[in-house]
């Protein structure tokens, strides 16, 4: 195994944290939505897209990123945010619509912005890729070795913004890495029905850039491939495209009837769970059960603290809806 042990431990603890966060959200999201499911009701109203199972994409490349690197993500952003080190308390408060949230309750779960760690996400498919191009351009113009990573789903690889952005980043040789999280479905439509090539990674050749495909939701392989892509980007060698075959354990959003896939599919995916695999690696490396327990406890505590912070925070005053349209201090 070629991953430094400290990195592997970080990946494990972060994956556990992500999984606990998403599993907790499954429960919290249903508060106030029983017995009749109303999307606009409850502790956490609105759409909820969870990423349980997709942790390897976030941590495999996240292990190579620094605070100064930029990450943009999609409508399914929690794993990417947690791996980038977004303030979990303020992120959760944002999802609860509280005034202590990252966006004072104006963004919600699909629109998380943490300027301290340069993370953003958005609800329009593929639209974050050009923003990452811009961050990469800024890094280059400032003479920094920072990189920008855009996470998207495999469905986004059929959007114009994806192709325009890869061409632009390639022609300007920008430090951009696009990570395609292939979870097999664009909401309900299987990749084979929507996409003319079996692997989006092949599309890298259309832009003369490096393309990588990571099979089996493998966090270790994701780490290795990302190491190469990030290193090359930092050296000014241009963009890369990484696609990872990953698994979405839950529906597109909570409340998705999932009529488009067989009842056996998710249990079979869970059999190959990447967190279990990384844990086995750590055990092989001689990490003690006590240390594993400590990592899991830390993750649990961080998640519990975040949800408690969100619950105890106040809602914004209604009048705050009229603020922050413009930066008034700017003049």
């Amino acid at each position: 195994m070629s991953i430094p042990l400290e990195k592997l431990k970080w990946m494990y603890e972060t994956m556990v944290k992500i999984r606990l966060y998403e599993e907790t959200m499954v429960q919290v999201y249903m508060e106030g939505k029983n017995p009749v499911f109303n999307i606009g009701a409850g502790t956490v109203p609105g759409e909820m897209h969870l990423a349980a199972g997709q942790e390897p994409a976030a941590v495999g490349i996240g292990a190579h990123l620094r605070k100064e690197d930029t990450v943009t993500a999609s409508h399914r952003p929690h794993h990417n945010a947690i791996a980038k080190g977004v303030d979990l308390n303020r992120m959760t408060a944002e999802i609860f619509g509280k005034e202590t949230g990252l966006g004072k309750g104006k963004g919600g779960h699909m629109h998380l912005f943490d300027t301290d760690v340069k993370f953003s996400c958005g609800g329009i498919v593929a639209a974050g890729v050009p923003h990452a191009v811009g961050a990469a351009l800024a890094a280059k113009m400032k003479g920094k070795d920072w990189v920008a990573v855009a996470f998207i789903g495999e469905g986004a690889a059929n959007a114009g913004a994806f192709h325009e952005s890869l061409n632009l980043a390639a022609v300007w040789k920008l430090p951009l890495i696009v990570v395609v999280e292939d979870n097999s479905y664009g909401i309900s439509v299987p990749k084979a029905v929507s996409t003319a090539v079996p692997f989006n990674a092949e599309r890298a050749s259309a832009y003369g850039i490096a393309g990588f495909y990571v099979r089996n939701n493998d966090p270790v392989e994701m780490y290795r491939v990302s190491e190469d892509a990030v290193k090359r980007a930092r050296l000014g060698e241009g963009p890369a495209l990484i696609e990872i075959e990953t698994y979405r354990y839950l529906g597109h959003f909570q409340g998705d009837p999932e009529v488009y896939r067989g009842i056996d599919e998710v249990p079979a995916l869970r059999e190959k769970d990447p967190i279990v695999r990384v844990k086995s690696l750590l055990v092989e490396e001689g990490v003690s059960q006590g240390e594993l327990n400590a990592m899991e406890t830390r993750a649990r505590s961080a998640v519990d603290e975040a949800y408690q912070f969100a619950r105890e925070s106040a809602y914004p005053q209604p009048g705050a809806a009229l603020e922050d349209v413009f930066d008034l201090a700017a003049q």
Binding site: T70, T72, K118, S120, A127, V129, P130, H131, A132, V133, G134, A135, A136, L137, A138, A139, M141, K142, A148, G160, A161, E164, S165, N167, L168
Partner: peptide, 17 residues
């Protein structure tokens, strides 16, 4: 590629450019 370069302006502006 107006989507890419206007989007890139947004991304660059967010970085202080």
């Amino acid at each position: 590629s107006e989507t890419a370069f206007i989007g890139a302006a947004i991304g660059a502006a967010a970085e202080g450019m």
